[in-house]
Computed example of a mutant assay.
Amino acid sequence: MGNKRPSKKRTFVMFSNLRNETSKGFRCKAFPAYLSGFCFQSAKVLQILLYSTLIFISLSFGCSTTALLKVGTLTVLDSLPLRLAQHKPIFTENHLVVETVYFESPSDLRAALMNGKVDAIITDLVGALLLNDQQERVKVVRVALRTSSSRPMFAIMTTPHHPITTVRGLENARIAISREASDKYVAEKLLGAAGVNRWTETEVSSAQTGLEMLQRGEVTAALLSEPLISVALGFGARVVLDDRRLLLGQTVVVFNQHVVNGKPAIIRRFLRAYEQSVRELNVRPNQYRSLVMELVRAPSEVSASLPIPLFTFPGEVPTESDVESVNTWLVAKKMLLQPVPYRRAVNAGFLWDPYQFRPAACCGW
Rank of each mutant, 00 (worst) to 15 (best):
F15K: 05
A33K: 07
F15T: 02
F38W: 05
S36T: 13
S16F: 06
C28Y: 14
A43R: 06
T11W: 10
S42L: 00
Q41Y: 05
N20M: 02
G37C: 01
G37K: 09
K24H: 05
T11G: 10
Q41C: 11
S36K: 06
M14F: 14
K9H: 12
Q41A: 14
C28S: 07
F38N: 10
Q47V: 14
F26A: 13
R5M: 08
C28E: 10
K29Y: 08
L18W: 05
N20V: 13
F31W: 03
L35P: 06
F31Q: 06
S42F: 04
S23W: 01
R19G: 07
F38H: 08
Q41I: 02
M14L: 14
R19Y: 09
Q41K: 07
R27I: 13
F26W: 09
K8Y: 11
F40W: 12
S36Q: 03
S16K: 10
T11C: 05
S16N: 07
F38E: 07
Q41W: 00
K24D: 09
I48Q: 05
V45H: 09
F38C: 03
Y34F: 08
L18G: 06
K29V: 01
S36M: 12
K8M: 14
R27L: 13
S36A: 04
E21T: 13
K8G: 12
A33D: 12
F15G: 00
K29R: 15
L18H: 08
